[in-house]
Design a protein around this nucleic acid. Structure first.
Lengths: 154, 154
DNA sequence: TTATCTCTGGATAATAATTATCCATAACAC
DNA sequence: GTGTTATGGATAATTATTATCCAGAGATAA
């Protein structure tokens, strides 16, 4: 598990503004550490782990604690500004670009995570809701396999 | 999180036979503890947790260790005889009736998990594979919301 | 600018699900 | 039955995440 490769991208600058606004408007302080974390989340086209965020932030603020990363991520989750991809076996990965449910494709060899385009989920959600009687609030869709790079290296 | 409710059902007896055969044919021993676990998995229309399986088995073999449950589940996973639904926050749940990828609907209040009917995933998998270049091996699709029962109790 | 008050960061301990270890014993082939 | 070896049980270890505690930074108003 090393790197992420990713195709398009939403506007990272805009996302940073949104995140900052979400914090400010609710009275949360914009500290240097938080700002650093927000930037990483807003810019990254990959889906960083807690560890990788921590490493990046420490490059600028060497005393930064892991707890600070967790606290900020928890806060952003509550504000709906980041999507958490929790895995039972490896640690969680985070998506700050598209903080709403959407499909992911995950390479089981290198850990790369990419966001494919898709519109069919809303239709499917409708069907599921009708068939089951559940009031569906969100979903999670992951595809697993080998990315093109790892296929070559086989 | 208390109970599971479930509609149809595959043939539990047949599933038990399949599981037993999978173990025997590869030289694994059929111990009383294993048999008890297999029966629970094959019959349960819900999606039992490690704890609930442990509790059930202990009713018959009081000295059964949690480790035994984990070992057997790991073995069955390797043999493709059980589907593990791992969650990052709560513990894992297991599906012994349909040990292949399929959608689940999960009640975020009571923890019930049901299996809706669905055929559309194979088509979607095709699309994903073509769009991303990944060689997709499996997937995971969860819908979250409130089950009919928990909606009433709101 | 300074005083005040509260939020936040850092260090560390605690938690909880799962996995690893070790050895006596039960399962199965012969 | 007997011998070989996988398995079960008890328990320690692991690992990601959360909780705790307090000094100090950030905001606010005078």
């Amino acid at each position: 598990m090393k790197s992420d490769r990713q195709p398009p991208m939403t506007d990272g600058k805009q996302r940073l503004e949104n995140m900052l606004e979400a914090l400010k408007s609710r009275g949360y302080r914009i500290t240097p550490q938080r700002l650093a974390i927000l930037k990483i989340l807003a810019q990254s086209r990959g889906h960083p782990s807690v560890e990788s965020i921590h490493k990046e932030v420490k490059a600028v603020f060497p005393t930064t604690s892991l707890a600070t990363i967790y606290k900020t991520l928890t806060l952003l989750k509550e504000l709906g500004q980041v999507l958490e991809l929790g895995f039972a076996d490896w640690g969680s990965r985070y998506d700050g670009n598209r903080p709403y449910p959407h499909p992911h494709i995950i390479c089981t060899k290198c850990g790369a995570i990419v966001d494919p385009e898709s519109e069919s989920m809303s239709v499917m959600t409708q069907e599921m809701s009708q068939a089951s009687g559940f009031r569906i609030t969100h979903h999670r869709l992951d595809f697993f396999g080998l990315c093109p790079q790892c296929q070559k290296e086989e």
